[in-house]
């Protein structure tokens, strides 16, 4: 049984790791510890997973709860991470102007209050529906929508601000 449940969870490990990594501002050991705790907790509560159900959403809910209850308090917020290092791996190398804009956008995302950052990442990066995001973060859907709107407005203001006319669009 444990082996079987692990196989089901395994396909979701890449996205859990990605979400944890961005959430923890690229602290990779800490992010992987978070994912491991999530998987272990899921294993120990396997009987609580309602089948048929959204396993990915359930795993993200567990990860979210560990993060909110234990990690966010334990981890002092580090400086905004230098994301330069993450560019070389991108499929299409951006030109200089786009590169600057990408840095502005990702830096602005990391500056967001935690609840807004989580909401924005769950919706845009992980593609969860608004309903799923509400379930994962444990808030009503109206709260998801207002967090999403506020998050995007802050990132937009930080990245484009008054220079909209001059700014280059990223694609």
């Amino acid at each position: 049984m444990p082996r079987r449940s692990f196989e089901l969870m395994e396909t979701h490990i890449p996205s859990l790791r990605r979400y944890a990594l961005v959430l923890l501002r690229h602290d990779e050991p800490l992010a992987d510890d978070l994912v491991q705790d999530c998987l272990e907790r899921a294993m120990s509560r396997w009987h609580l997973w309602r089948r048929p159900g959204n396993l990915r959403g359930w795993l993200f809910t567990i990860l979210h709860n560990i993060y909110v209850n234990d990690v966010a308090r334990a981890v002092a917020r580090p400086d905004v991470v230098e994301i330069q290092d993450y560019f070389p791996a991108m499929a299409v190398p951006p030109n200089q102007a786009d590169r600057i804009r990408l840095r502005e956008v990702t830096a602005a995302i990391q500056e967001l209050p935690d609840t807004q950052r989580q909401t924005l990442l769950l919706v845009t990066m992980e593609g969860f529906s608004y309903d799923e995001t509400a379930d994962i973060t444990g808030v009503p859907i109206g709260t998801v929508m207002s967090r999403l709107s506020r998050a995007r407005e802050k990132v937009r203001a930080a990245s484009w601000g008054e220079t909209r006319e001059n700014g280059r669009r990223i694609t």
Binding site: P2, R3, F6, M9, E10, I13, P14, S15, R17, R18, L21, V22, D32, V35, Q36, L39, E40, M43, I83, Y86, F87, A89, M90, A91, V92, P94, R101, L102, V105, T106, I109, L120, L121, T124, M125, R152, V155, R156, S159, R169, I170, T171
Partner: peptide, 28 residues
């Protein structure tokens, strides 16, 4: 464009190989 930037910066993070340590989670 914000969504586009998220995809461009974070999309490749899905392709990282899974470290062996996560097999430990399969243990009781």
């Amino acid at each position: 464009d914000i969504s586009g930037a998220v995809e461009q910066v974070y999309g490749h993070l899905l392709e990282r190989p899974i470290p062996a340590r996560f097999q430990n989670a399969a243990a009781p």
